[in-house]
Design a binder for these strands. Structure first.
Lengths: 230, 230
DNA sequence: GTATAATATTATAGTATTAAGACATCTATG
DNA sequence: CATAGATGTCTTAATACTATAATATTATAC
C-alpha cells in the first residue's frame, strides 16, 4: 500500500523536488509550506511519514516535531537540518525525530531513508491489516471501521456497505439499481429511492457540508459517483 | 508477545518520550511519577521490566530498586542516572539493577537496551509461559487462568473460550456466527443470541462498568470486537 | 422563464438489534 | 443424592436503524 508522506518545507523548489522523487517511488505525497499548515494536514489525513524542515517561518520545525510526536506516536519523522545543528538533540528525547538529513541532500538518499523508516515502522508498529485506502478515507474491513483522516466515523451497516462499494470503485458512476443490488441484494422489493435517502445519510456523516458534497457526487439522471482524484 | 514495562520518572516530558518509543517497539507501557506510585503499580500489575530514574521526589530510585529487587527477583530493572553517579554501586549487589543509562540518552538506544534485557530475562528467567498478553489482561492457556493486572478473574469455560478468541484477535470484528462456531462448534443447534448472553456475562466480570464497555465493543449489526488500542 | 423530471431533505412510524434480567435445566463434585 | 455453579432459553426493556412518504429544492428541456 502506498504510504502517505507529508512534506513540510517553505521553499517551493525543494518541496516540489522532494515530492517528485517520492511520487516516483510510489508514495502519495502531501505538501505544506508552514508548520501550522503541516500540523493541520497531519490532523486531517492519515499521514504515515513526515519530512520536516527545521527552518520554517512561524512555528519552527523543532516545535512541529515535538507536537507531532506527542500527538501521533506512530508517525515517522525525518528532519531536514543544516549541517551545524545538534544531532543528539534532534534525535534524542528533546524532539524525538526518527531520522535526519543535512542539507543539501541527495534526493535518492532521501527516498532510501523514507523507505528504511517505512520498514522500521512496519516491523515495530501494528501489523498490516487489509484496509481500503482512498484519501482521506480508510476502511478497515478486519475491524469494520471507517476513518476520515485520523478519526473514526461510526457508520451503520447500510452506510458502511455503500461506502465500501464506492471506495472499492472510485470514479465509477453507479446507477441506483447497481447500488441497490450490491447493498440490499437482488431480491429487494421496494423503491430505489431508498438509495437517495441512504446516500444522504452517508453524506451527512462524511462530507464537510452535505449540501455541497465533494466526495459523493450526483450523476444527474444516472446515480452517484465517488469523486476520484482531481 | 508485548511485555509490560513500567517507567518511573518524575519529569513528564522524558516519561512521555520514553513511553512513545517503547509503545512503538510493541511494549505495553505504564507510567509512574513517584517511587511510591511505581511500587504500587508493580504490586498490582504483572510488570516485566522497570525503567527507573534515580532522582525522584520522596523515595529515591536506589531505594525503589532495592525494594523491587527484593520483592520481585525476576523483574528487569534499568536505571537512568546522571553521568557522575557511581555505576558500580548501581549495577552491583547494593541495589541490583540489570542495566543503566546515563542522561541525556537516545531513545532508540533505550529501546535496544530494553530489548536486550528482555532477551536475557527470557533465557535465565522463568519458563516461556504460553500466555497471551493484551494489557491489562493476560491468559495462561495451560492453567486456563485469566488475569486482569495481577489479580485473577475466575471465568467459566464458555467465558474463557470467548475471552481467548478475542485476545488472540484484538481489533477483529467478529460476527455472532463466527463466535458461535469457535466457542460452541459448528454443530451447535440453537439461537446465536446465546452469544449475546455470554458476552454480557464476560463483560460483567472484566469491565469496570458493564453497561459502558471499554474492552468488548459492540459492532452494530455485526457482532463484537475486542478494542485494539485507544 | 416555465414546466417537468430528478434529486434533496425532513419527519415519522415501524422494525430489527442489542441489553438486561429471570428462570429452569443441566452438570460436575463431593 | 444434594448442592452450587454453569448454561441455554425466554421475556421485557432500551436503543438504533431504516423504509416510506410527504415536501422542498434543483436541474434540464423547451
Amino acid at each position: 500500500m502506498g504510504r502517505l508522506v507529508l512534506i513540510v518545507e517553505d521553499e517551493e523548489s525543494i518541496r516540489k523536488f522532494v515530492k517528485i522523487n517520492l511520487d516516483r517511488a510510489g508514495y502519495s505525497v502531501l505538501e505544506a509550506s508552514t508548520g501550522e499548515e503541516g500540523l493541520q494536514i497531519a490532523a486531517q489525513e492519515s499521514v504515515d511519514i513526515v519530512v520536516l524542515d527545521v527552518m520554517l517561518p512561524g512555528i519552527d520545525g523543532f516545535e512541529v516535531c515535538r507536537i507531532l510526536r506527542e500527538k501521533y506516536p506512530y508517525l515517522g519523522i525525518i528532519m531536514l537540518t543544516a549541517k551545524s545543528q545538534d544531532i543528539d538533540k534532534i534525535m534524542g528525547l528533546e524532539y524525538g525525530s526518527d531520522d535526519y538529513m543535512t542539507k543539501p541532500f541527495n534526493p535518492t538518499e532521501l527516498v532510501l531513508r523514507v523507505k528504511s523508516l517505512e520498514r522500521r515502522l512496519e516491523i515495530n508498529g501494528e501489523d498490516e491489516k487489509p484496509s481500503l485506502d482512498f484519501h482521506p478515507f480508510r476502511i478497515d474491513v478486519y475491524s469494520r471501521q471507517f476513518y476520515k483522516g485520523k478519526s473514526e466515523i461510526i457508520l451503520t451497516p447500510t452506510e458502511f456497505s455503500i461506502a465500501k462499494l464506492f471506495i472499492e470503485n472510485p470514479g465509477k458512476a453507479f446507477k441506483r439499481d447497481e447500488i441497490l443490488n450490491y447493498v440490499w441484494g437482488v431480491d429487494f422489493v421496494g423503491d430505489s429511492k431508498i438509495v437517495d435517502v441512504n446516500i444522504r445519510r452517508l453524506r451527512s456523516k462524511i462530507e464537510e457540508d452535505s449540501s455541497q458534497p465533494t466526495y459523493i457526487e450526483t450523476v444527474w439522471g444516472v446515480g452517484y459517483r465517488w469523486k476520484s482524484r482531481e
